[in-house]
Design a protein around this nucleic acid. Structure first.
Length: 154
DNA sequence: GCCAACGTTGGC
DNA sequence: GCCAACGTTGGC
């Protein structure tokens, strides 16, 4: 059982969009970064939990909790020339990009903001990848200690 | 293998 | 819209 943080821009896909999706489940497609791809393909296990993080928006922060309900499989949007996330270097016989399916566990009662997380950056969240300078990774592992602490903030 | 150029991320 | 930080590409 592992813990993760997954970023999404709410203008493209928000926690409310997930709540409204069929089965409250979505395919986490479109990741085009090798390190994040490796987490999707090799790291995530059935039943893992992840924070759903809103990025590039007015109030960046953690908006909810999701669960991995399908482990890594090839991202078909990479094969579709008409798709925004098309990648000519990926093909179905040798896929480059992977995705998982996640299901909403719960929407938090409030956003746990980036500011609030930062206020613990010299304490409990000292090693949190999200808070490291210049971090841009859209999928990052979270330790159990970090997870439990953040969950207790709600 | 180096590194400059470029595109992207994401907070502000 | 700005810009710092970063990942990727491609020339050499």
């Amino acid at each position: 059982m592992n813990y993760w943080l997954m970023k999404s821009e709410p203008d493209s896909f928000s926690i409310d969009a997930l709540a409204a999706a069929p089965g409250r489940t979505t395919g986490w497609d479109g990741v085009r970064n090798f390190q994040a791809r490796n987490f999707l393909r090799d790291g995530m296990q059935q039943g893992d939990l992840a924070f759903f993080y809103h990025s590039s928006c007015a109030v960046p922060g953690i908006a909810g909790i999701v669960k991995v309900v399908r482990t890594g499989y090839p991202d078909p949007t990479a094969f579709d020339a008409a798709h925004h996330h098309y990648d000519a270097d990926s093909d179905s016989s040798n896929p480059r990009w992977y995705m998982v399916d996640v299901k909403l566990v719960k929407k938090l009662k409030r956003i746990i903001t980036l500011d609030e997380l930062r206020s613990h950056a010299s304490g409990k969240l000292k090693n949190m990848i999200l808070l490291k300078r210049g971090n841009r990774l859209s999928i990052t592992p979270v330790t159990k200690t970090e997870w439990d602490f953040i969950a207790s903030l709600e």
